[in-house]
Amino acid sequence: MPPLLDVRDLEAGYGPINVLHRLSLSVDPGEIVAMIGANGAGKSTTLMTLSGVVRARAGRIVFDGKDLVADRVPAHMIVRLGLAQSPEGRKIFPRLSVLENLQMGAFTRTDPDGVAKDIEKAFTMFPILRERQHQAGGLLSGGQQQMLAIARALMARPKLLLLDEPSLGLAPQIVVQIFDVIRELNRQGVSILLVEQNARMALKVAHRGYVLETGRITFTDKADVLLHDPRIRAAYLGE
């Protein structure tokens, strides 16, 4: 089976500075892939480039058989192809209600019945969101906002979900819940590319992992191999 996402020699950056240097990675259908790395390694830039918000300077991003770089697919079309992102720091719309946030996630869709069904599905998965559906998103707690951000990204019915630091700033107990959700989503068939500073949690839930250092992939292997690699343990798992 061809990979769902195949990135080859990707270069991207801001102004005169290149952040990603010939970065290559792939995600197979049904996989959870974790990308770990220190601050400033280029994790978020990678996701933003995949989403089309940051423009790729060279290389290929083949998603579901379509080359996003060569075809110059703009950001708002990439979501329509089935690649949705839950950005870092959650970035929910604080003044829109929970329900409206979910509806914004389905902005690209034109099937109101399907959207209503998916909102119902999101409420079943996250009962707290149903309870607070008419409240402003900004009134939710951090963990609830993260759940809303994930639910919102799912509203686009993505084939591949990009999650940027879903554990950022959350209490350990909430982090465990969020990772349960990620596992459950994957069981339902969503492929996930997960970017995390919490390397241990990320590698525990992922099938494969990549280690990113200053814009380059330095290691890649099965997640449990990385989890036990002494170099990774020393550098990212604090041992």
Binding site: S86, F107, R152
Partner: peptide, 10 residues
Amino acid sequence: EDELAAACMG
């Protein structure tokens, strides 16, 4: 509210 998040929503 958030231009970046809006762009991520398509």
